[in-house]
Design a protein around this nucleic acid. Structure first.
Lengths: 190, 190
DNA sequence: GAGAGGGGAGAACGATCGTTCTCACAACGC
DNA sequence: GCGTTGTGAGAACGATCGTTCTCCCCTCTC
């Protein structure tokens, strides 16, 4: 990938996140990325292809950051909770304006099947990741969707409220759900 | 409120929900509502005033539907769970495309302070309502934000996944959280 | 019946958007 | 040195949007 290409996608990511996809025109992106309009259309055939590239970048960045945060702790139960510590750090960033996939789905999902599909795939991949962490912790299958829903809710709550406290609230709820699920498994085994 | 005015807002609500606010132009709204463009601008000074009227309508409709669902059961604990039964019915509707406030916030929140503010107020009012239900059930204060986050997460998960199952998953998580919170209160009192 | 007023249909306007085209200039091979 | 190629700057194009204006007809009043 050319250096111009990565700079375009990184700049588009920032601008789209800060102000919304439809609110940022190609000329503004061109100026912010420091590239000519010709170069822009030489790297990408259309705006929607830039949007898809931004979504892929967001997915990679989210997955890498999450997995790095999870790997920092060893205990399977703590690994599930590390998801919410990761959220807390994210919510605290100045640039945080909600989950980029929820936002792009809300903005374009009804009009762009590609965007809707990619948002769906991203969320499925997150749920599957939570599922593997949960099963390694010995939890029953129903725990993963519960924790995923908590994480989703924390993201939208933090975005709209403009505060980061939803991460801690979701984390303490997750503790209760995890211990209940592990306890149910343990008492059933006994 | 004139009959034309209510029809305009109701039509705008449907169209904005189905395809997004920015994707629906004034002329399409005019045609769907069966009014003249002159009438439209005689009832509302601008598109953004229609958007605000739609948000108010959504807020009323949501609050009335939720309170009606809650009143159908008597037990305080069951009333908290009735929130998620209400969500389940909502998610099952063909027209469901996610929470209109989350969507409008994602689409316009960064560019329209009014929309951002109204979305915030709507979510605060929901959390307060959950708070009164929770306190009547004798639950500690931390339960309400936890249940609110679950409800938010169920809405976005159901919207993006396109299925209604998130409501049941959130409901069973809510049961665990409620019983844990009530049990903590009870055991502390004992 | 004549005139006035109001509302409907839709043209028009100015702005903005995504995309393409023009043109001038700089770097390179021969 | 000269033509070729490719790039940057930005004008231009066509579409669409929110909003306003024009024109015409219908309906009242006297």
């Amino acid at each position: 990938m050319s250096e111009a290409r990565t700079r375009i996608v990184a700049t588009a990511d920032e601008l789209y996140n800060a102000r919304g996809i439809q609110a940022v025109g190609m000329d503004e992106l061109r100026a912010a990325a420091g590239v000519s309009l010709k170069k822009l259309y030489q790297e990408f055939p259309s705006k929607s292809s830039i949007v898809m590239a931004v979504l892929e970048r967001r997915h990679r960045s989210w997955a890498e950051g999450l997995e790095a945060a999870v790997r920092q702790v060893a205990e399977p139960r703590e690994r599930l909770l590390a998801i919410f510590d990761y959220l807390a750090r994210w919510f605290g960033e100045d640039s945080f304006r909600g989950c980029g996939f929820i936002n792009s789905f809300a903005e374009l999902g009804a009009v762009s099947p590609e965007v809707a599909q990619y948002a769906r795939e991203h969320k499925v991949s997150f749920q599957e990741y939570v599922g593997t962490l949960a099963s390694r912790a010995g939890a029953p299958a129903y725990l993963a969707p519960q924790l995923s829903i908590l994480a989703e809710g924390a993201q939208t709550t933090a975005a709209i409220a403009g505060t980061a406290e939803a991460a801690q609230q979701a984390r303490s709820a997750a503790e209760v759900l995890i211990d209940a699920a592990l306890g149910a498994r343990a008492s059933r085994a006994a």
